[in-house]
């Protein structure tokens, strides 16, 4: 007869914190540098402009950059209420990043610690008042993504969607096509494809039987807009992302 039972309370904590949001969007790509962080930031800006209260979570512990794109410093004061409240970027847009705790230092994290750090961020992040949570992930399909998929499937299955980003490069598309069945298998959701750094041929791109939600133009003015939400909202890339938001928004 079992008379003692033990477990890690974090899962219950994550379940509670995520019960506060209406939808979760995970942004992934197996290939690095295709624009996940840029897309996450622009999605946040576009959703916020539509009046949707949006939270952004950076789980790229090796190289967090979401705050850089949005011009948020690494050292910010966070309010401690049932965990921590994310930092307010602009109206309707909030962010939580590992740099708020570790600063701009690379952390030597092995796989298991990466997973612990991920669970901890989800346990402490208090997304009260946030409707849509968008998660920026590191490149690849490793510990972070596998843990994230499992976590969201167990505590937020109905409200989770995944966007897979690619460039028009054949290497990126090959890498994407290879990964999509696995993502689908793990998350039980069909990934939505976004083509970034697109050329004039990209809108007609086919990625197996998957829906391509839209394309974001290669925009050479993006670089100078980095760090300023106002300037980002004036870029062509932003307009393309705003169109994608309209297309994938739930009625």
């Amino acid at each position: 007869m079992v008379n003692v039972a033990e477990s890690d309370p974090r899962l219950s904590g994550v379940e509670y914190q995520l019960s506060k949001v209406e939808e979760v969007i995970i942004v992934v790509s197996t290939k690095g540098g295709v624009g996940k962080s840029t897309l996450t930031a622009l999605l946040g800006l576009a959703l916020a402009e539509k009046g949707v209260s949006t939270g952004l979570l950076d789980v790229d512990f090796a190289s967090p950059t979401l705050h850089v794109i949005l011009g948020v410093p690494a050292r910010v004061e966070l309010e401690e209420v049932m965990g921590v409240k994310p930092y307010k970027v602009i109206d309707n847009l909030y962010i939580l990043s590992p740099v708020f705790f570790a600063g701009e230092t690379s952390l030597p994290l092995r796989g298991e610690e990466d997973v612990d750090a991920l669970l901890e961020l989800f346990t402490i992040g208090n997304w009260e008042g946030v409707n849509t949570l968008v998660i920026d992930t590191p490149p690849g399909l490793g510990d972070t993504q596998l843990t994230l998929f499992k976590l969201l499937r167990s505590v937020a299955a109905d409200k989770t969607r995944v966007i897979a980003v690619t460039t028009p490069s054949r290497l990126s598309i090959k890498s994407l096509e290879r990964s999509l069945p696995l993502v689908e298998e793990l998350l039980h959701k069909k990934p939505i494809i976004v083509v970034n750094m697109a050329d004039s041929f990209s809108p007609r791109l086919r990625v197996k039987e998957y829906v391509v939600a839209g394309a974001i133009r290669l925009d050479d003015r993006l670089e100078e807009a980095v760090g300023s939400p106002d300037k980002l909202r004036m870029t062509e890339a932003y307009k393309d992302v705003a169109a994608i938001v309209d297309k994938i928004s739930r009625p």
């Binding site: 039972a5 899962l11 219950s12 509670y16 914190q17 401690e80 209420v81 049932m82 346990t123 402490i124």
Partner: peptide, 21 residues
Amino acid sequence: MHEAAIALAVLREAEKLAKSL
């Protein structure tokens, strides 16, 4: 408070564990 979030998670988890006992 962080402690409040932990206490809540602990209580929820304890309830679940109690059922498996």
